[in-house]
Design a protein around this nucleic acid. Structure first.
Length: 275
DNA sequence: CCCTGCCTGCTG
DNA sequence: CAGCAGGCAGGG
């Protein structure tokens, strides 16, 4: 489920609660979620490690300890919760990091698509996929010129390009639709067909829209736990995603839902035109 | 480009 | 009940 604004929110809520915590024990209920090694090795390696910090890259999260990077991807339904030890155990809890303080960091994932990797600090990461990511949406390199270069020889639609993590990291189906709506560009347009002024609008709106939705996602630690990590507060501010068939918030024409590259896409045929 | 698999839960 | 879901990898 989570895209960049959600992953960033999770990082901001979780990090202050786990920094300084020392791992006493790690429990893995479903071995499949550990991509790097046998669960036994994963658990054993992390005992006595202290959490130093947390970071985000695209939709990946990293938890940094003295000797390791714990890298994880929540995919569609993954969640992280910091709880007291006696907090009710959610269904589909696959990993529990027990801290010496009594607090726990829990990974919950109903569809079990989420993955964890354990990397030594000096190890070069060639396994998680982070090494294949394009620049962060907030990287100043993301100019109209840059977009022109990466789109130039692509036959793909702009929607598919925005979803391509090798080109830009962190944009998923929701925000691809929202960004295209904001700049009034049809999702089915060929990326290479965008004019320079259109690319300028895109280069501006990618970080602008994502910042906006990160801000709207702000939540307190208590509210986050209360919502079990499922409360995404920016949802009411989405203009098109999940609104197929509704009136466009700008022009009131009916928003259309189509399929592009196997993904549902919602757009306004009036504001964004028809091809 | 397309398709499949990975999984469970929710919606119509 | 089928169909769909905000992700990604792998294969043809």
């Amino acid at each position: 489920m989570p895209e960049l604004p959600e992953v960033e929110m999770i990082k901001r809520v979780i990090e202050p609660q786990i920094v300084g915590q020392k791992i006493q024990k790690v429990l893995v209920n479903h071995p499949q979620v550990i991509a790097t090694s046998l669960p036994h090795v994963f658990c054993q390696s992390l005992i006595h490690e202290q959490i130093k910090s947390m970071s985000r890259r695209g939709k990946f999260l990293m938890i940094h300890t003295n000797r390791y990077h714990i890298t994880l991807h929540l995919r569609m339904t993954g969640r992280l919760l910091v709880t007291p030890a006696d907090y009710e155990m959610e269904k589909h809890t696959h990993i529990i990091f027990q801290f010496e303080s009594g607090k726990e960091l829990r990974f919950i994932d109903s569809r079990r698509f989420g993955r964890f990797w354990l990397l030594e600090k000096n190890e070069t990461d060639k396994i998680t996929g982070i090494h294949k990511l394009g620049p962060e949406p907030f990287d100043p390199i993301l100019t109209a010129e840059y977009l022109q270069t990466i789109f130039a020889r692509r036959q793909k639609t702009i929607k598919e390009c925005l979803l391509d993590q090798r080109l830009i990291a962190g944009i998923g189906n929701i925000y691809a639709d929202e960004i295209l709506f904001r700049i009034k560009i049809h999702p089915r347009r060929k990326a290479s067909s965008l004019s320079f002024p259109e690319l300028e609008r895109l280069a501006f709106e990618i970080p602008n829209a994502l910042h906006y939705y990160i801000d709207k996602n702000e939540i307190s630690e208590t509210d986050y736990l209360h919502g079990k990590g499922k409360d995404y507060r920016n949802t009411p501010y989405l203009n098109v995603y999940g609104h197929g068939g509704d009136p466009c918030p700008i022009c009131s024409q009916t928003l259309k839902k189509i399929v592009i590259g196997g993904r549902s896409s919602v757009y306004c045929p009036n504001c964004q035109g028809e091809i």
